[in-house]
Amino acid sequence: MLQIENLVKKYDTNTVLDEVSATFEEGKCYLLLGANGAGKSTLAKCIAGDEGYESGSIQWHNSSTNVSDIVALQYQFFNSYPHLKVREVIQLFQRLIVNPYDINELYTLLNVSSFEQTLIKNLSGGQQKTLSIILAFLLNKKIIILDEPFATLDLQRKQVLAEFIKNQIHQDRLFIIISHEIAGFEDLFDSILILQNGKIMEQGTMSDLKKKYKQTTFPGIEGIYFEVTGQVLGGYKK
């Protein structure tokens, strides 16, 4: 269980995360929702150890284990090693990881072979995203944080990725997904956390939130988000 308690993160005087508390359980998939600047990516970076924080705690099973050691964070872009081919980057990481995850299935599902001979500098946004996802899984970590994994992927890849993640959840991994694209993937998520201005405005399981917000303007998660924040996913205010 990943426990975050009263996490405060500031950039100079700007408070990006304000007393954020949340609990994430293994074998579940969490959707982190919020407008741009709400603090989603910062929270992900704090969990992954890329960013420090002013106060609060992040613990794994109540222990002082370095949480960042068990986290794989998929960044939105991969533009390292510009003159290596995709296949070579994957081979490099396979060597650098002692027990790499077997990515053969994902490799086929995301059709990486179609651009494996392309230099990183020549990749499209979607291909960079795909490689970033492959590397995040290759790291073989208990907690996987995916930052907008569906954005810039084509429809077919979005669907196979969602199916793949569903199967992975059953293997006792913990997924935290930051995404604005949720249409068609709602059954992927067990729980939702809604961030606004660095604060968690709402959190709960899908079923609990659907019971709590029965009369929504929009259907599904978008409706819940609209009721909580007064905004549609994308920016419109009520």
Partner: peptide, 12 residues
Amino acid sequence: NKTYHWLKRTNV
């Protein structure tokens, strides 16, 4: 390029 964000999660 923030390559170290990736490398620090490997075993190297």
